[in-house]
Structures are given as C-alpha cells and as structure tokens.
Design a protein around this nucleic acid. Structure first.
Lengths: 272, 272
DNA sequence: GAGGTTCTGTTGTCCGGACAAATGATTGAC
DNA sequence: GTCAATCATTTGTCCGGACAACAGAACCTC
C-alpha cells in the first residue's frame, strides 16, 4: 500500500494499484532476498544487500526505502528483523529514519566510516610502498609513564619497539611502541614485513577503541638526521593507547611524523 | 536462579537458595527501577541508570550483570527492552557481552566516549575562560575550494567567519569557517559569546559526523603577531567538514592552533 | 588421572502483535 | 484565501514467546 524503494523522490501517484498487474516488486528489482539456510543472520544479510544497493547506486541519496512493514512482508521477514538491518545502516550513517516520513538514503559525500588508522595500511592504500626498519625490539620493565598509559604495574615486563617507517625509501615517521608481554609474538622479521595492528589482529586481539592525542613540535637536534628534516622543522606527534574489546590496554605508542610528508585523516562520529 | 550483579567475580556457590530468605534484590540495591509514566523510553531510563551505576563504581569492572531474563523479570520489563538498554551501553564501550558467559562491565580506563570536539567547550571544560574575537563575518560567493569541501556549487552564497580564540587573554588559535547561507543566523555578538557548534545545535541542526585532517606547519610571517608565536614556530593545523544527520555538509573549517598551547585529544572507535 | 561427553546457563536470533508519537497532507470552517 | 482540525502514514517503543549457538562446568568412561 505504498510506492517504496527506488527513485521515489517525486510523489507520482500512479493509482497505487498493481495488484492484478505485474507487481514489479522493488525488493526483487534490487536483488533483495535472504537465504534461510545460511548461517549468516537474516538481518545481516539484508543489511549487506541494502548497503551494496546503496554503494552501486541502485538506491540513490534521498530516495525513500518504503515502510518497514511492507518490506518485511515482501521479504518474508518479521518487522523486528528488518528494523535491525536498517538500524545497523543508520548507525553506519548510510540511512536516516524520520518518524511519520520514512527511511531515506543519506545524501553523503563521505563513503567510508574510516577505521582506526594504521600508518602502514594508510601508506599501502595510497600506493606508496611502505618499508619498516626495526631499530629496537626488546623486553624489559615498564617505566612509570608507560605503566600508567597501559594501566599495568610499574616494572611489569613490556615490549619496547622502535621503528623507522619509510615510503619510497624516504623516512616518514619514527614510531615508538610499548606492548604488554604475553599478548603477542613480536618477531623482528614480521615487524619489518607488515604493520603492528595487523600483527595484533592476527594474534586474535579484537581492537575496539583508541585514545589519541595529536600535537606538533619542532625537530630536535638528535632526531634531525634520522628523519631527514632540518632542526626546528615542524613535526606532527601522536600518542595513542589502544584497547581491545574487554577494555584492556594492548598498546601504547608515541609517534613522530614528518609534517611535510604526512597528515592525519579521520572521521569523528557524534553519539548523542 | 543465579547470583547476578554486584561483585560476582568469584563463583561462590552459596546454595543458590534465598527464595524464602530476604531476596536482597540486587536491582533494588543498585537503585534500578523505571518510571512508566515518564515520557523517557524505558530502555533509555535503564541504560542511564546502569551507566550511572558503573560511573559511581556500584558496578565494578569485570563484574557480571546477571542474565537478561531475570533482570527483565525483576524490573517488570520484557527481555527485548532490557536488551536494548544493554546494547546501547555495549555500543558505548561500557559493557561486553559474551554468549554462554554473560554481560560484564568493561575494565576500561577510558571513561568518556569523547564527542566531536569543540575548541570552545574543550577550553571551558578545562577551566580556562575562552574568549572569542570575531575578525570577519561576511556573506559572499564560495571559492572553488570551499564549494568542493561543502559540496555546493561554486559561487553559492556562504558565510565567511574568521575568529581568534583566546584563553586567559592569550591567543590559542585562529579559526576560519565557511557555512552555507540559510542554515544559521550568524550574529557577531553571539559568535563572541559562545562556540559555533553550540550555535548550530541551537539552530536545530543535528550534527552527525565530521571528516578531519590534522597536520602541522611552521608559522608564517603574516600570522606570527596574530598568534603571538615567533616566525617558524610549529603550528597545528586542522581542516574539518561537518555533516548533519542527513549527510549534508553544514560547515567547513580551516583552523590553526599554537602547538605550544594545544593538542587534540580524541577517541577512535573501531566498527567491525 | 586424563580425556571426552553431557548438561546447564547465557546470549543471539527471530517471530507476531499492539499501541504511541510525529509528520505531512487533506479537509473543513471562517 | 487563511487558518485550524482531522486523518492517514510511518517510525518508535514495548510485549511475550521460541529455538539456536556457544561457553563452561560437571560428569562419566577408560
């Protein structure tokens, strides 16, 4: 009892019939339909398909999605299930719901939610061939500062890693990291082959959030050569503590980037 | 049929009786209880109370929350409602659910999710008395760069605001903003009294997300005096486009901060 | 004692229904 | 013609129930 989905921006009132005519089901047109034998939850299947439809432009920004009851009926799902799918896309910022109006595709220029940034992945995605030079990889007692940042006792065993990150053979950043012992197998060869975050994820850690502090300062004399910047040149600094899904701190890093070569890009979400 | 809530870390099996003894309802102990006459949704009331209990330490990190069915029964709510409350706290990173185990309070040092940062609010929260000096407040055609950032046509009318933000009478940052015309009533007096984000929210705009880019550079000759920094001193730069809940760009800002006085603090969430 | 099996408790998913609240259009009165 | 009241539509909230999937403990077998 409504004309949903697709380009329903203009309210063309074509008699709202079609009960005897070919239904021309918009859900079918969009390729929506769930597989009940799949172990993937139904709401998740639907969410993925809707997201794909938005991504490929089958659902244009501003278009209405049709009411939930009908959509559920057409797909053979219950309304709560459809709502759960829609809600997950609303959380992602792809859809907006308005009571009394409907659910519409967001008119956004921002595509990706942008995750916890990893310098290695960033560089690789940008087509630069990242390279890592491990300058230090030791295990020892945590200093007061590191212990406070990681929330462990002072003197606890922690890994201490120092790396120089290069792109196209030129230094980009100097990375200092501290990781509690026992979480990770920190092999120097592996550290030179990939990024730290990838190693942590591979070790079964599910990263959840990170507290960051970004600032700037001038290049000191003792780091000028290492970073190939003149003394006094501006540097971008970042201190970050990363937590896994249980709230445990799994990494503390204090990094220095060449401001002439790098800047942070990220997206902040407002959670009201 | 279980011993939930409070410090249930140790599995003391005290006969699981208590059906005839005083129940000593943990929900009551925690001050949980909803008001059905309130217009505030029940799940939201419960979420707030749980969050408050965590905040004040009544629910200690690592402690189990007790199963959802019992909790629902004790509060006179249905399980879906309780689940919705819990889920909102899981999204906030305060709780973790594990199937077969239960829901427990996260062992986190991070308290606040940290929202879209507003320099004005940041300074005010830090006890510094922020002050704003409006240097420019005009309406004119958008340049190519501004139009691209805001996603509007070049030449479209936009506000152009330049402000100097001070704390304790000392300059902290130079803020340049562009806002599409018609969204907001940009009164210079009001701009000097509060922050831009507060004005936008007061105008009924619901901010949703922002795309940011943070870098660093040296102080140029023409801005040295304005910021009270010597020429060549490192500055922190930020470019940000803010979007409302419909995905529309509502603000574009290019800001410069004194690195000696300010650094960004924020939290990134991983959305898997 | 070691190992696998069963059992119990918990969250995850899904259903069907009901009413309230907000929005926008339609209708009606003046 | 203008304004207010009404109505239909749609999402928001809430209920009660059912079964599946998973983790951990208890149990039993060898």
């Amino acid at each position: 009892m409504s004309k949903p989905l697709a380009n329903a921006a203009q309210g063309k009132q074509d008699g709202q019939g079609g009960q005897d005519r070919q239904p021309k089901d918009p859900a079918v047109v969009l390729g929506l339909g769930v597989d009940r034998s799949s172990p993937v939850p139904l709401y998740f299947q639907l969410a993925q398909q809707l997201e794909a439809a938005i991504e490929r432009g089958a659902l244009t920004p501003g278009s209405l999605l049709g009411n939930e009851i009908d959509l559920a009926g057409r797909l053979g799902l219950s309304r709560p299930t459809v709502r759960q799918a829609i809600q997950s896309l609303v959380d992602k910022g792809l859809l907006v719901r308005r009571r009394g109006v409907g659910t519409q595709v967001v008119h956004s220029q921002v595509k990706r939610p942008l995750e916890l940034s990893s310098l290695y992945d960033d560089l690789e995605a940008a087509g630069q061939r990242p390279e890592t030079r491990v300058l230090r990889n030791t295990l020892g007692p945590a200093s007061a500062e590191v212990a406070a940042a990681l929330g462990v006792a002072e003197g606890q065993e922690v890994h201490h890693v120092e790396r120089l990150r290069l792109a196209h053979g030129e230094p980009m950043a100097f990375l200092t990291n501290h990781i509690p012992a026992g979480l990770l197998d920190l092999d120097t060869a592996r550290l030179e082959a990939t990024g730290l975050y990838r190693l942590m994820r591979a070790a079964g850690l599910t990263l959840h959030s990170a507290r960051q502090s970004v600032g700037a300062r001038a290049t000191a004399a003792d780091e000028a050569e290492r970073l190939a910047e003149p003394e006094g040149a501006p540097l971008l600094t970042m201190r970050r503590t990363t937590f896994d899904d249980t709230g445990r701190a799994v990494e503390f890093g204090a990094h220095v980037y060449r401001a002439s070569r790098y800047s942070f890009e990220f997206q902040l979400l407002v959670r009201p």
